[in-house]
Write a protein that binds this DNA or RNA. Structure first.
Lengths: 338, 338
DNA sequence: TAAATTTGTGCAATCGTTCCCGACAACGTT
DNA sequence: AACGTTGTCGGGAACGATTGCACAAATTTA
């Protein structure tokens, strides 16, 4: 079943050799118009499609790129994927998506899997559990092009595309303070993620500018980044039980922001009366939320596009690339209900 | 750059033939323990990985399945994808996801692309624009295993996995009526989608049971299924401008449900005072919505799992399968705020 | 007219792997 | 001693496509 037509079938039917057929299809100069025409016509008639697997084996490349994200059920990543696809399809590349579900183990397995399936390059946003990146650096050393986006591994010298997390965090925290918050807490995910560090830096900078001291007890970590309700609830309860209760929270992640709103709802914490809140989120239904969320939105689509452009540039480079860039795109602040 | 080690390298290093090395790695019986051991040891030492592309060419299969959905940025589909992956990875299959963005043209291109990349089978949920399915039926006739889920094409005789849309729609409409609604409207997407038809049938059945006449003007179609705000707004405004304004709406789709809430918010329509609403949705942040939504939730993860199991069964079948099933899984009604 | 060049085509190798077939020992059996 | 078995292994043909090289025929040039 499912017998695809090959170049051999055409050759046999037309009494030619496979090489002649190949040349006719590839449209090289050293072929007569007559045979070329007959081959092309026959190929079209029987619906010939070149076998990309055979080509991959010969050309030693698969015309496909692998994408490693934590979750497609995440507005930021699904928008980034749309950006990735928009560029990749244009250039004739396939996109293979794999999800880590924030697990280091799955990330390693998926990366190996993609590499062994001979993707020509990798677009990676590391999982929140990832601290050891040897699974990526060994591949990178072997010459596999890798571009990081969003959650980058600065230890690996390659292109990186991120949002201006520090500035976004600064603006959100600054906004909360300007609207009357005196004690701004910070809810973030895994401490070793690049985005966590950058957003923490922006948060601290804003406090600094306003002459507010940084309190370590105001910074709460949720390693699962909002995927576990209990973890988020525990973090918020910890903040609420402090002697000097915070009056605002700056939240560092997409799932964490909605998770936080869920906890607020259950604990009957009103926004902005009891607590102000601003957080990173790329959800497209933010306007429907109650409590409402002042959000920092990343240019996810553009980040995906840019990262893909840079990856394809690496893949198609004639000579090994030595100079790498870190591209930083600006975020947008959407104020709601404060 | 990136020179992978092949079976030939091992053969040369150990002074064996490639066939012997292959046998040692494949662990066939006709090989001595000693050579097998030495080959396996050396292979491990230099990190040999079989080339899956070469294998695909030889075995005429790629150990990968293609998934066609409208959008990954859709709770239902991203949950279904998780279900698909959970089964596929377990059985050693790769999952290649492609999005149609509800465009027929893109669906055709993507399906061709996947087929030419030699996926071993296809999991398909057709786009809302799709009426002509020859791009799928020709492949199916050639012997490519296809399983439909969610939005099925009944013209093609193969396995199908769906939610009990009719019953879910019935329960939602019934719920609205039992809670006092006298004039229940129906907002749905493309009229030719299987899910639209099934849900419409359930809606009509509920009206029927309660002895309420069906009014065609109460049924509004949004071909873009909530992706275009203007379209959704126009449909709702049409309902509101009727002489006998509906007092409840049953909404037939995920994006349409949230789209509808967005319009309500902007038009300051209160729920349930001005209008009751119930709709299909698999969003995991429904509890945060205001206006709130009574939702019908599909077992998306299980649908993905089941569809994948059936597809793999078709792919790995020794003999052509002639008997096909349609599996129907039950939905859940979550009542909110009425 | 013969030699030189151009033009069109086929042969065979290649990519990495598997597997059928044949070779050839070292046995055991008559 | 001759033959059949059994266990190991190598040779080589596939899988589908491309491409350098060789070579014949057609064309141009001397």
């Amino acid at each position: 079943m499912f017998e695809p037509v090959t170049i051999k079938d055409i050759a046999k039917a037309l009494g030619l050799s496979t090489s002649t057929v190949s040349r006719a299809l590839r449209d090289t100069h050293e072929i007569s118009e007559a045979t070329k025409k007959s081959v092309l016509e026959y190929a079209k008639a029987i619906g010939y499609q070149p076998n990309p697997i055979a080509l991959s084996l010969k050309e030693r490349r698969s015309k496909s790129i692998g994408v490693v994200v934590s979750e497609v059920a995440n507005s930021y990543f699904s928008q980034a994927i749309n950006g990735i696809e928009s560029i990749a399809y244009d250039k004739g590349y396939h996109v293979i998506i794999s999800q880590t579900h924030e697990s280091f183990e799955r990330e390693v397995v998926n990366v190996q899997h993609l590499a062994s399936r001979s993707v020509d390059g990798l677009l990676v946003s590391v999982s929140s559990e990832t601290t050891d990146i040897t699974h990526l650096s060994t591949l990178h050393q072997k010459g596999l092009p890798i571009v990081f986006f969003d959650r980058v591994a600065n230890e690996i010298n390659t292109h990186k595309v991120i949002a201006n997390n520090e500035k976004g965090a600064f603006e959100a925290t600054d906004h909360l303070i300007r609207n009357g918050a005196k004690r701004v807490a910070h809810l973030t995910s895994s401490s070793h993620l690049s985005i966590s560090k950058e957003r923490l830096a922006g948060y601290k900078e804003a406090l600094d500018v306003h002459g507010i001291a940084i309190r370590e007890e105001y910074i709460q970590y949720c390693p699962h980044g909002g995927m576990l309700y209990e973890e988020t609830e525990r973090a918020i309860k910890a903040l609420l039980s402090l002697p000097e209760k915070p009056d605002a929270i700056f939240v560092a992640g997409d799932r964490l922001s909605t998770g936080c709103l869920g906890v607020f709802k259950n604990l009957k914490i009103r926004v902005p009366e009891d607590m102000r809140i601003a957080g990173f989120s790329n959800s497209d239904v933010l306007d429907l939320f109650n409590p409402s969320l002042t959000s920092i939105r990343q240019p996810a689509f553009e980040i995906g596009q840019k990262a893909t452009q840079m990856l394809l540039q690496l893949i198609e480079a004639k000579y090994p690339v030595e100079e790498f860039e870190k591209i930083v795109l600006e975020t947008d602040l959407f104020v709601r209900n404060h």
